[in-house]
Amino acid sequence: MSGTNLSVFGVFFGLAIWFFFEPVKEPFPRAPATAEVSAEDISTASRRVRMSEPPGIGENEFRLQCQECHKLFPSDRDVRVKLSQHENIQLNHGLNSWCFNCHSLEDRNKLVIQGDEEIGYDRVEELCAKCHGTVFRDWQRGMHGRTNGYWDASLGESKRLVCTECHDPHSPAYPTYEPLPGPNTLRMGTPLQSGHDERKRNPLMQWRGATNHDSTQSQHSKEQE
């Protein structure tokens, strides 16, 4: 009788010893911490600087503005892309491929709207509005473009960025970015993929250019592996 009791006691006591001396450590793998993101990566600065003055060359008192050269070298109104001086300007603005659609022929420090009405660089949005009327209206109402600062004007300043603070006027398409690291919220195993190829079943997606699409798809799936 006591033999049974002793063995039961032994089982419990052994268990207690085991529990007590078993090292206590995190019994789960921790995924590596969130990839470090530098302050620059998430800065709130606009992509381009706001230009209220035409760009110049040189510093301080030697700073020269456009017109100071251009009054010496009159331009041909028909000049389009091949430039001898401004080789760094890649004009990639769709149908709008004439310099003097935007720049004033007479005064290169000015932009031109409505035929020959000249405006300063600080009113650039009116120039863009010549073609992009719907976007301009959206922008006026704050439906297009960035608004930073305060949503409540009574508490602080609200800053609405103008066209050229995001878009390069010579090449306005928004540039591509390197994306910041994706989620790795899983503590166990590797992140799994969703986003399977539904094209076979979805007629909307079959309209897309097949060759282009396939190549990106296969490349994509390689990256996923």
């Binding site: 919220t185 899983l186 166990m188």
Partner: peptide, 12 residues
Amino acid sequence: VFGLATTGLTDQ
């Protein structure tokens, strides 16, 4: 001690 991370549960 270690929280529910000791389980197989995730936010998903």
